[in-house]
Simulated assay, not measured.
Amino acid sequence: MAGTADQTVRLLAELQARAKALGFDAFGIARADARPDLPAKLHHALAQGWHADMEWMAETEERRGSPTALWSEAKSVIVLGVNYAPAENPLDLLEQRTVGAISAYARNRDYHDLIKGRLKELAGLLAQRSGADVKVFVDTAPLMEKPLAEAAGLGWQGKHSVLVSRPFGSWLFLGAILTSAELPINAPHPENCGSCRKCLDICPTDAFPAPFRLDARKCLAYYSVEHKGPIPREFRRPMGNRIYGCDDCLAVCPWNKFAAQSREARLRSRPELESPALADLVDLDDAGFRALFSGSPIKRIGQARFVRNVLIGIGNSGDEALALKAEQRLDNASPLVRGAAIWALRRLDPERAEALRLDRMGRERDSSVNAEWDGTV
């Protein structure tokens, strides 16, 4: 970037002030090539199959491994964070088994939409002032923003693989601006987990093969959000009432005690998504689902997958009064919903489920649903 050192200092001050005004809580800069270790780490994770059936990760491996592979002109990366710490501890919802636990990040507008517009405005300011080229990225792009945030001094990747920040704990949305400008960089943040392993020990499915490593094939967040088929049987009981995402490893992080003090920029969750009743959610048809989750990331998984998750929650609720709700879904158009309804009914009212089994199997044409009738809870 052409210009004197004083001009650069003034530009950075202007960018930081504008970022704060836009609602960003964290700001840091790293060289685009600051993490030459990432390609090897990514290749190892993919070789182990830790990405489950998220094939897009493997398909974009070469670009994902390095910002300069994604955009050869990149010299610097500005990483920004927005605090979304929930007002209450998400773990408290897991004790309320007849309500749905929605991950804290999904209780407001889709964070991709929230952040991308702000990033574009800030990137536009940088381009205008410096004449440099810019590109903005949220996590839908093949950019490994968490290790880059670590390199930019925002925090460190914890043992749960999520970025941990001193002032914001595990609750930061991240976005990045790649630029052809060579900007002054921040010092990388050292790892500060120490001997703590609370995030590893709380995981209900043992999804961490080692500290700092996550195997999506055992992750409840993956199954409730990314997985398109039936929830594997071995993960249904551990899923409890988690109907979208899983906050356990984030919520237990001791650094979150500082996030509770950072209230000014917190993204408030929508009240209707804080503790919704499973009995109401399972009644959502497609129109009702779209209306309730308009502007929400939950909308992307579609009504059938969402009701699948809700029925797993109903099966784990222990509330026999909800058995009728499950039975009413046995004729649903979606095999995903019918299969989950069978599992829930067998959990809550096994005698009624057995009475329906032979007749229903004789009429059912989907093999996965018949496998549910034949299966065990």
Rank of each mutant, 00 (worst) to 15 (best):
I312M: 02
A19D: 04
A152C: 08
A17I: 03
A207G: 08
D37Q: 08
S103F: 01
P36N: 07
G240C: 09
A353W: 09
V282D: 13
C246W: 02
L356A: 09
P184Y: 11
K120I: 10
L322V: 09
L122R: 07
H160W: 08
R305Y: 03
K120C: 11
A371R: 14
V282M: 09
R242A: 05
A176K: 00
P36S: 07
E351C: 06
L281H: 11
K146Q: 15
I78E: 05
V82F: 00
R308A: 09
R360E: 04
S262P: 08
P238H: 05
A104G: 05
E364F: 09
N83R: 03
E320R: 15
Q7F: 10
A259I: 12
W343H: 10
D283M: 14
D374L: 15
L174T: 07
V134D: 08
S103W: 02
I78W: 06
L70K: 00
C246F: 02
R300C: 02
V369F: 01
G153M: 03
M239G: 05
P204F: 03
L93N: 04
L42T: 01
V134S: 01
L178C: 13
R237V: 14
L220G: 04
L284K: 12
D53I: 07
D6S: 15
L143R: 04
N89H: 12
A251I: 06
N108V: 03
L200E: 09
G158W: 02
N332Y: 06
V77S: 00
K198N: 14
E150H: 08
D331A: 11
M239E: 07
N256A: 14
T205Q: 11
S296N: 11
P335C: 03
A176V: 05
A371E: 15
W343F: 01
T68L: 00
L122P: 08
D113V: 05
L80H: 00
L119Y: 00
P190A: 10
R233T: 15
A13H: 10
E61M: 12
L348W: 08
K41C: 01
G313Y: 02
D248H: 13
A279L: 04
D206G: 13
P297D: 12
L122D: 06
V77K: 02
G339D: 05
E88W: 03
K146G: 06
A279F: 12
D201R: 14
F289P: 03
V377N: 12
K159A: 02
V82C: 00
G339L: 01
P190G: 09
A74Q: 02
R10S: 11
A19S: 10
G81V: 00
P271Y: 12
Y84C: 05
K20P: 03
G362F: 13
T179I: 06
R109S: 10
A127I: 07
G339Q: 01
D286Q: 14
L15W: 09
D280H: 13
G295W: 12
L46T: 03
R268A: 15
